[in-house]
Design a protein around this nucleic acid. Structure first.
Lengths: 336, 336
DNA sequence: GTTGGCACTCGGTAGCATCGAGTGCCAGAT
DNA sequence: ATCTGGCACTCGATGCTACCGAGTGCCAAC
């Protein structure tokens, strides 16, 4: 596609632009390491690169900045980047010291990633639908208020406050719980909708009432994945753009957890590990780039870590950080 | 303290400055409703107000802007403000339709508040220490990995993944659970540290091992309140200040959940419902103001709702919003 | 005590010249 | 045939000046 020289000129432009955020001129490129030709030659090549859509000029007589296509080419040409010593050390010690519940750890991981990359970071946990119910419990909070608690095989918990119209005996609750337990254990929680209430000649019993109240609660408000998303370092985006409007719209996106999950899933589904500008599929992220990596627990892919920054982000750094953190996070979760 | 006329001039200045974010001059004040004197008189009074520290000038020959003291006076002089019709309607319909778990509802509440006030909103849940354990459960995830689950009387759940060195029999887990249950039910979870392991002549049993592993887990990483804080609408702060640095530092604060809880608690403890600038006790919030209101469940104060915005926020609006939302939230939580 | 008038201040904006980083192109060197 | 140095040109950024106008403080008159 691009000959060797064009490629290295493009690389030099992207690298300098990432550092300075200023349009880069032929002079700078000519001085860049790895460039042995004069600025005039660089100019010719840059004009060609512009014609092919890799670079653009903010205005005549300014330097060039990479287009989306330019970043894409740059990223595709990157060979597996590795993390610098001190960053790698930081990651290691983070996971050595990590403690607390999974949720806490995932949240802390976003902070780690954000710190490593000076961008916003996102960690998405495993989708809830895949986890299997391990135990079911009904705990009475007040006479007519019951808490449904399901412990899932992966250590997460689903709970629901259930409002019963009437007060139900302890015995009724116990029998309801064992009925639910029987039907749900080993199944994903969505199996709840299949639990039928037995129809008795004498009309609905206490137990039926309990079971159908639980079923109803999950029907009205089904599980969504929004509380399995953790976002950190959003404040880093403030200085990423100079247009306040851009900043605001990006932050607004990050506040919508469901949107964030969808975004990450979507990018992963397309088999990308970097989505640049419009590749994210979200108009407000036109000027952003997203770098993602999956993490696996016991060989199974359960979640995603990602970094969101300006399109002119430090891709090598971000790619390395995401890869390493994803790997280490997976290991950490696998071991316990 | 301030005579009638000075007070109304101060009020006029604050109100206009809140609207326009521009220094306000004597001319505008003279034209404000409720002001019957000429601009010259206003000038004299404003000079006096400046002398007394209620107003300040960004530079000679500019209008005045309120100082912290000025805002304070303004707020103190406010009589219980009420919410406008459409906002009140919005709050009502929000709580009528609210569903899902408490956590979800609190998170949504921050969005409601943020929407009402165009500021960032914070909701703090009840401190975890006060809740009493209702049931205790140990669920085995893998042979040597156990999940400790405590359902609390207020419907919240504490869980902990416990790494046992060795694999423990189902029976051992059950007996451990009932031991823990016996010791903890009716107590706050901190009582865990008091659970002693019986010392047997034959050395520690399986049960002792389980119990002490649980105790150890909570000793290493004690409960903190950070996951009982919900922040919403942080993106609103982007346009609140024109100094990017200010925005960043404020957002950074909002990202630190523990800091936010402490901040709110601290303000409430001082008996304030508005903290302006340095009254917040946090240097980065110098230019902000915080408006808070408690909410009660069954007559007991369990949490706080708050709004964080620029010092020139719309206080009447914010005060009314937090009051109404706090009230309604309390009611909603009391009923189920 | 209040007010209109007045001189003064000073940030903001518009106009203008200048500067310089950058470009495209061409003619000569390799 | 390709690269390079040179050159004329472009155009945003910077700095200067003039000016406008919102606002002030003060004073004399009502």
């Amino acid at each position: 596609m691009l000959d060797e020289r064009k490629a290295s000129i493009l690389r030099a432009v992207v690298e300098e632009y990432i550092q300075t955020a200023q349009p880069v001129g032929s002079g700078h490129v000519a001085n860049a390491p790895g460039i042995t030709v004069s600025s005039a030659t660089v100019r010719n090549e840059m004009a060609a690169l512009e014609g092919e859509g890799y670079l653009t000029q903010p205005h005549t007589s300014a330097g060039r900045i990479p287009t989306e296509k330019g970043y894409r080419e740059f990223v595709d040409a990157l060979s597996a980047p590795s993390l610098d010593r001190s960053a790698a050390q930081k990651v290691k010690s983070f996971f050595d010291q990590a403690h607390g519940e999974i949720e806490q750890m995932l949240a802390d991981t976003t902070r780690l990633l954000a710190g490593l990359t000076d961008s916003a970071a996102v960690v998405v946990g495993p989708p809830r639908e895949v986890a299997r119910v391990k135990t079911v419990q009904l705990v009475s909070l007040t006479p007519s208020l019951v808490l449904f608690v399901a412990v899932m095989g992966n250590g997460s918990i689903e709970k629901r406050t259930i409002e019963l119209g009437i007060s139900v005996s302890e015995d009724g609750l116990h029998r309801g719980a064992s009925l639910l337990s029987e039907a749900l254990v080993g199944q994903p929680i969505s199996a709840l909708s299949l639990v039928g209430s037995a129809v008795h000649a004498e009309g609905p019993t206490e137990v039926d009432l309990v079971v159908s109240a639980v079923r109803e609660a999950f029907r009205v408000a089904p599980l969504d994945d929004s509380d399995h998303v953790f976002v950190g370092g959003a404040s880093q985006m403030v200085s990423a753009f100079d247009a306040v409007e851009t900043v605001r719209s990006v932050l607004t996106i990050l506040e919508q957890q469901l949107v964030v999950v969808t975004l990450l899933r979507d990018v992963m589904d397309r088999g990308l590990n970097v989505a640049i500008g419009s590749e994210t599929g979200m108009q407000p992220l036109e000027q952003c780039a997203l770098v993602v990596a999956p993490y696996t627990v016991d060989g199974e892919q359960v979640g995603t870590v990602g970094v969101l920054g300006p399109a002119r982000m430090n891709y090598p750094q971000a790619l390395a950080a995401v890869a390493v953190v994803g790997k280490r996070l997976g290991n950490r979760l696998s071991e316990g």
